[in-house]
Design a protein around this nucleic acid. Structure first.
Length: 700
DNA sequence: AAAAAAT
């Protein structure tokens, strides 16, 4: 039963894999001298109390970071973070920068070495920022080359920002900022793989999709920023969403991060803002100036609002927005919890036209009178299902319906969601007007891009098995290890660390700064192993993850799908290995279904278990099927009808209707079977389970 | 039961 890990490995190979092969140093060595100049006192890892517990490597405090300089260098590209960085990261260690482009950006502009950390200091509020040249102290929080920019020009920005100016014309270029924003280098997206993603758009008078960014007029600012990001071709979701949004239609899109979704809404929204200018918002800001500032800066009236469920996702979107707002008069801001609110308020007061926010912090800001949504004509809900899962619905409704935001029909609203359950359908009904429903299949996830392995591992054997897997995997392939609890994450990270692996962890009890730093270390390849709880399961776009390991399987199949969706992204192959034992009975059948749907190899024991479990479940009676968490929970699910799981009838003796008979369209499931707008397509779960989509997606 | 998120 135990371990033949090597047999599962070959599938992850791809050209990228070979590119990123470099040797992981011994534990004491990988950390090198990288902290030179980049780490300041006062930057504490709040968990570092262990003294010399970690005797096989650098103290923990040293691990989760050191590359503070990365972030500002554009390495935080959510679409394609650092395919190449892994190659250089280790080599450049000793300079402290970890990434040559970033370092160059600093040195060539004579920046202070500590600037690279300012993102974290800003969040933590502990940096003596007053001594910084103004914009340089702001990394995350200042997207503008505004005043005192080391001689690179554009210090006239504030003065130039008059309402009679044409927002569609680019502002002055800024070489340094440009380098900072776009240094991420080529996106590395394999667009050929993207072409396999199926998309279906339904709704009245649906605008036709585009095939090239040139097919739709987005203005020179957007076009030049597209060029700078080197997005050569639109991804499938962009092909459809951009013309829909440009045509001022509301949109409900089933799509996930990793499909190019962020740019799919940022590009057309920003483009429209550039075309239309600030309108009444600027006037309101001036006349409503209760404040001392000449523009009355106390309250900001963003023109566009993007809501996201997690802080990290909000940050990703913000970073993307900064790129497309380059050389424009639009100033993006981001607010989220866990960071110093005073800092964020000060940033807002510098001007905020596009706001990215997590719901709780935004409500806070609104109640403090820092944000008015009166002129917010663009609303984006990203990962809407996740936000509802996390209990944000009251805050969302508070923001959208119970304040001053323009009503639907006046504002333009775009919702993105991986799934389309009843709750989301209701939200769509309430927030959207005459919307287009867009179903975007995804490269990855349960598609055949990901090889899914399930192995039986008793709890006591998990660590040992994990080490085998890690050893068999290319040392610098990014590996994401999921555990169920925060405590478990800490414990496993400690264990791996003591075993000499360059790893870090992310979970909800770590400080925001640590979370961001851990992600960063992982992305950059400096810590190619990330131990994570559910916080990292969804939305995070780390494009290069080769292997997802479910050290602990989740109890919820949705969670499982989201987790494994962290690999096999942007068209690459991925591997997902799950440790299964008798504690995982609750996910047995759902897991089997997923494996079958994705045409994966199914261990015979899993099939037997699922059959037994189902049998047991059936003998307990039907009512059980509707208890949450009970075995029949997935009967609520709308897949695509018997067809998508059509292999079922012949498998394991199950009958097609054996799941309760309410699968698929037309069944008696919990959810309405159609999207609210009457479109004929919709599924609670995953768009790629639609049979014809599966057909499209199968790869040769 | 756990996790996330405003404090």
């Amino acid at each position: 039963m135990r371990r033949k890990p090597s047999c599962t490995m070959g599938v992850t190979m791809s050209p990228l894999y070979f590119l990123s092969v470099f040797t992981q140093d011994t534990p004491g060595g990988w950390d090198g001298g990288r902290n030179n100049g980049f780490v300041q006192n006062g930057y504490h890892d709040n968990r570092m109390n262990g003294g010399n517990r970690y005797n096989s490597g650098p103290p923990r405090m040293e691990r989760g970071r050191g590359g503070g300089g990365f972030r500002r260098g554009g390495s935080y590209n959510p679409v394609q973070p650092m395919q190449n960085a892994g190659m250089f990261g280790v080599y450049d260690n000793k300079d402290g920068g970890g990434w040559n482009t970033t370092k160059d950006a600093y040195t060539s502009f004579g920046a202070r070495p500590d600037r690279g950390k300012s993102a974290f200091f800003n969040n933590g509020g502990s940096a003596p920022r007053g001594s910084f040249p103004d914009p340089c102290g702001y990394v995350l929080l200042d997207s503008y080359p505004r005043g005192g920019f080391g001689g690179s020009g554009n210090s006239r920005w504030v003065e130039e920002s008059r309402d009679d100016e044409d927002w569609s014309k680019p502002t002055q270029a800024n070489e340094r900022l440009e380098q900072e924003l776009f240094a991420g280098g080529n996106t590395g997206i394999n667009f050929d793989n993207y072409d396999d993603i199926p998309v279906e758009a339904t709704g009245q008078n649906c605008p036709h999709h585009i095939d090239s960014f040139q097919d739709v007029e987005m203005g020179e600012i957007i076009m030049s920023n597209i060029a700078l990001t080197r997005y050569t071709r639109p991804t499938p979701v962009q092909k459809y969403a951009i013309p829909i949004i440009k045509n001022k239609r509301d949109l409900m899109a089933c799509a996930q991060t990793g499909s190019g979704k962020t740019a799919a809404f940022l590009l057309p929204v920003l483009s429209q803002i550039y075309t239309e200018g600030p309108g009444e918002a600027l006037a309101a800001q001036k006349s409503g100036g209760q404040d001392n500032g000449k523009y009355g800066r106390r309250k900001q009236y963003p023109l566009a609002l993007v809501l996201a469920p997690t802080r990290e996702l909000a940050l990703q979107i913000y970073e993307e927005a900064r790129k497309f707002a380059y050389r424009s008069r639009v100033r993006p801001c981001v607010v989220y919890g866990g960071a110093d609110i005073g800092q964020q308020i000060r940033d807002l007061e510098r001007g905020c036209h596009l706001l990215v926010a997590t719901p709780g912090r935004l409500v806070d800001m609104m109640e403090r009178g820092k944000i008015g949504l009166d002129y917010c004509n663009y609303l984006v809900l990203d990962e809407a299902d996740r936000m509802l899962d996390m209990g944000f619905e009251p805050q969302i409704r508070r923001i959208v319906e119970q304040d001053t935001m323009p009503p639907k029909g006046i504002r333009q609203t775009m919702m993105f969601s991986a799934t389309f359950p009843k709750e989301i359908q209701i939200l769509a009904r309430d927030f959207l007007e005459e919307y287009i429903f867009l179903a975007v299949g995804r490269v990855g996830s349960t598609s055949e891009n990901i090889t899914q392995k399930v192995v039986w591992v008793e709890d006591g054997d998990k660590r040992s098995f994990l080490l085998d897997l890690l050893n068999a995997t290319g040392k610098n392939s990014l590996t994401l290890v999921f555990v169920e609890t925060k405590k478990g994450a800490d414990a496993l990270e400690d264990f791996l660390y003591r075993e000499g692996y360059a790893c870090t962890s992310i979970h909800g009890d770590r400080s925001q700064r640590d979370r961001e730093e851990a992600l960063h270390q992982f992305r950059s390849g400096r810590c190619p192993i990330l131990v994570a709880t559910a916080v990292a399961a969804r939305g995070l776009d780390i494009s290069n993850v080769k292997h997802v390991i479910n050290f602990d399987l989740p109890s919820d199949i949705e969670e499982y799908v989201h987790r494994i969706g962290r690999t096999g992204r942007v068209g690459n192959l991925g591997l997902a290995t799950s440790f299964f034992n008798d504690k995982n009975g609750n996910i047995t059948k759902d897991l089997l279904d997923i494996l079958v749907e994705a045409k994966q190899e199914v261990p015979s024991w899993l099939e037997s278990l699922a059959y037994e479990h189902q049998h047991k479940s059936n003998t307990r009676g039907r009512s059980k099927r509707f208890t949450s968490g009970g075995f029949g929970a997935r009967d609520y699910r709308q897949t695509s009808g018997g067809g998508s799981t059509g292999g079922f009838g012949g498998r394991g003796g199950r009958q097609p209707g054996g799941h309760g008979g309410n699968r698929g369209f037309g069944g008696g499931g919990k959810y309405p079977l159609k999207p609210h707008n009457g479109a004929t397509f919709g599924c609670k779960y995953y768009c790629w389970s639609i049979p014809q989509f599966l057909g499209h997606m199968s790869k040769s």
